[in-house]
Amino acid sequence: MNVLVDSRPHQDATARMPLIRGILEARYKRRFFAHRELAYHLYRGVYDSFDDAQASIPPGNASGYDNNESADLYRERTRRVFINDYPMIHWLGRFFAEGARDVFDVGGHIGIAYYAYQKYLSYPASLRWTVMDVPAVNAAGAAWAKEHDAPGRLGFADDIASASGADVLFAAGSLQYLSYSLADALSPMPRRPRFLLLNSVPVHMRQSYYTVQNIGTACCPYHVTAEREFLGGLASLGYELQDRWENPQRYCIVPFHPELSLDRYFGFAFRLAT
């Protein structure tokens, strides 16, 4: 099912009529929380905060990635890359050439990028790659590493504060799940990472908001950030934008809110000014 096409009836003028819109929203709510397909994700609602988005998820629905079903996702991605990975591979290779050896991977699941990218990059002998994720995912990653990480370069952490002192903070499609902004996380670090390498970031040109995403195994609060807020927050910490790219294969359709829906995501490479 094409979720982009499927969402269009909610966006037309009829859906803006109060009575009809109420009926459509109730019907979509039932469909949203019953969704179990892994092939595509659904989005619902607009909220001012992570907590408000979290509170909208019924107690009977699994929430977030800290569960066995969500932890078992994405195994096939350890063996392949996608077109939007190539800018990340390019910049990571450049950062390695400049001496980067310590990568802190925010929301890297079981180490998806670590495994997939080694086919395309010569990893430094002294590489240390640390994934920060939720407990269920970290446990699954540690178990997977016993059989698949012969060099023993992969480790796991549960707090983004551990990124202090890393050479590269790497985040691919994960910043939107955090209850805090990246700038807020970096601000108190004694030694901020020299490089930021960020991919699949949902950025709206004008407005920040939270929605809820159903990934098939669970529902997750999901943060879309205004462009000025996202870039300005990092610039205020001394990060200089090196590159920016678009990923039109990713989109976020929020039914009943066409003005907030996204038709593409973005990637960024930053360097800390010296």
Rank of each mutant, 00 (worst) to 15 (best):
F170Q: 13
Y210W: 15
P59Y: 07
L262S: 01
Y40C: 14
E76N: 10
S126F: 03
Q118K: 09
D6T: 11
V203M: 07
Y123D: 01
G216P: 01
E98Y: 03
T14L: 14
L4K: 14
S7T: 11
Y222F: 15
Q207L: 08
V134F: 02
F266V: 03
P87H: 05
S122H: 11
L186Y: 01
H148C: 13
T78K: 15
D48L: 11
P87G: 06
N2S: 06
E259R: 02
A163E: 05
G233I: 00
P58E: 04
Y115D: 10
L175F: 10
P59K: 09
L178T: 10
F230K: 01
S236G: 06
I57Y: 04
A140Q: 02
Y47F: 08
I89F: 04
W245C: 05
P193C: 06
I23M: 07
Y114N: 04
I160Y: 13
L42P: 11
F256L: 04
I253M: 15
R271K: 11
D243V: 08
F104C: 04
R153H: 14
A140H: 01
S7C: 12
Y28P: 04
P188H: 03
F95V: 06
R192Y: 05
R8N: 14
P87R: 05
I215M: 11
L24V: 02
S174K: 14
R153E: 13
S236P: 00
Y251D: 04
A166I: 13
T211P: 12
R31Q: 14
I20A: 06
R44L: 14
A145D: 03
A139T: 07
M189T: 10
Q176F: 13
D167E: 05
S236V: 01
Y209S: 02
V103P: 13
L38G: 05
Y65K: 00
N67R: 00
I57N: 03
P135N: 00
D85Q: 10
A13F: 13
V81P: 09
T217L: 07
R94L: 08
Q249T: 09
L260Q: 09
R16K: 11
A125K: 07
A125I: 02
D48I: 08
T130W: 12
V254A: 03
L24F: 01
R79V: 15
S63F: 05
P87F: 03
A39E: 12
Y222R: 12
R31F: 10
A62E: 03
D149M: 12
G60N: 04
H223Y: 13
H223S: 10
A116W: 13
D159H: 02
A161L: 04
E246W: 11
H257C: 08
E229L: 06
L73S: 08
L178N: 08
L175G: 10
H90M: 07
P124Y: 04
A171S: 15
L42C: 15
Y120W: 15
G45N: 08
S164I: 02
I20T: 05
E147Q: 11
R128T: 15
D85S: 12
I215N: 11
A235Y: 03
L121C: 10
S187A: 10
H148D: 12
S187Q: 10
E227G: 07
P221V: 00
T14G: 13
S179Q: 12
I160G: 10
E229M: 02
L19W: 04
A235P: 01
E76H: 09
D66S: 00
Y86A: 06
T211W: 15
